[in-house]
């Protein structure tokens, strides 16, 4: 007869083993990508997950031959600017709804919320024409502002619900102490919703960095392109050389993966703190 404790231990080990096996299968595409990137030209077309020996030649070649730094910088500029605008604009709006309770703000809130029901596929054509009329094709601003407009509603929902849950006596005290609205926003509201701000920042960063559809249409000049839309041109360039292609794909995917691993703790903390609730 097994003791309950021993049974629990065995069950825990079995569950861990199963999770590791599932994870092994789940990671196949990523492992395969890295594995092809590490192959010599002779092994490149082998239908196997792993080959031996490995070489770093492909990585050296693609880094030397391609302006990856400049492309990375394009992604970074567009993403950081979008995140800053989304966080600023949505927190101001959430403050107007949740704390200032301006007349008509709930109507505005509901109107802006409908954005979340709009699929991007139905927006690319009108946005492309609008940006063309503004002369914003192939500019950073041409992506930053539409991304911000599409990102604000989700951030606003989260920040508003956090501000509503914050202790209202603090806002009352700030008013009694003679803080004006701006000071209350800056010194009271923002520090109170920090976990939500972190969550919104990370999520908006991921979404913007990986956005493909609008970037494909707005960025046609090669010196403006972002990391997300260059893989297609490399798949043509390195058609006969999968080792080089997959080395460059690994490099393109790496920055965001590394960033996520670094910030995942704060991201999940924001999520668990109720960043996603009704």
């Amino acid at each position: 007869m097994m003791t309950p404790l021993a049974r629990n231990r065995i069950r825990g080990m079995v569950i861990h083993a199963v999770l590791f096996i599932v994870l092994g299968f789940w990671m196949v595409p990523q492992i395969y990508m890295l594995s092809i990137g590490l192959r010599t030209p002779a092994q490149a077309f082998d239908a196997e997950l792993f080959t031996w020996p490995v070489t770093f030649d492909n990585f050296v070649t693609v880094i030397r031959d391609n302006p990856l730094g400049a492309i990375f910088l394009n992604s970074l500029i567009i993403t950081v600017a979008t995140v800053v605008i989304v966080v600023a604009v949505s927190s101001l709006f959430a403050f107007a709804c949740a704390i200032l309770r301006l007349k008509g703000s709930i109507f505005l809130y509901t109107t802006l919320l409908t954005t979340l029901m709009v699929p991007l596929a139905s927006m690319v054509l009108p946005l492309a024409i609008l940006l063309q009329n503004f002369g914003w094709v192939n500019t950073y601003i041409g992506l930053i502002l539409p991304y911000a407009a599409l990102g604000v509603p989700f951030a606003m929902v989260i920040l508003k619900s956090f501000m509503e849950d914050a202790p209202h006596e603090l806002f009352e005290a700030a008013r009694v102490d003679g803080c004006n609205a701006w000071q209350t926003y800056w010194h009271v509201a923002l520090p109170l919703v920090r976990p939500a701000l972190v969550f919104v920042t990370i999520w908006q960063f991921i979404v913007t960095w990986n956005e493909f559809f609008l970037a494909l249409i707005v960025l046609t000049k090669s010196e403006m392109k972002t990391l997300t839309i260059v893989p297609m041109q490399y798949s043509g360039l390195y058609m006969a050389n999968p080792g080089a292609l997959f080395a460059i794909l690994t490099l393109i995917a790496l920055p965001l993966i590394l960033l996520y691993v670094l910030v995942q703790r704060a991201f999940v903390r924001g999520l668990l703190a109720g960043a996603v609730k009704g």
């Binding site: 789940w26 990671m27 595409p29 990523q30 395969y32 990508m33 991921i206 960095w209 990986n210 493909f212 990391l227 997300t228 839309i229 260059v230 893989p231 297609m232 798949s235 292609l245 997959f246 794909l249 393109i252 995917a253 965001l256 993966i257 960033l259 996520y260």
Partner: peptide, 13 residues
Amino acid sequence: LPVVTSVSVISLV
């Protein structure tokens, strides 16, 4: 991790 891996990279893989 697949969520944060660029969709264009994923597609080619």
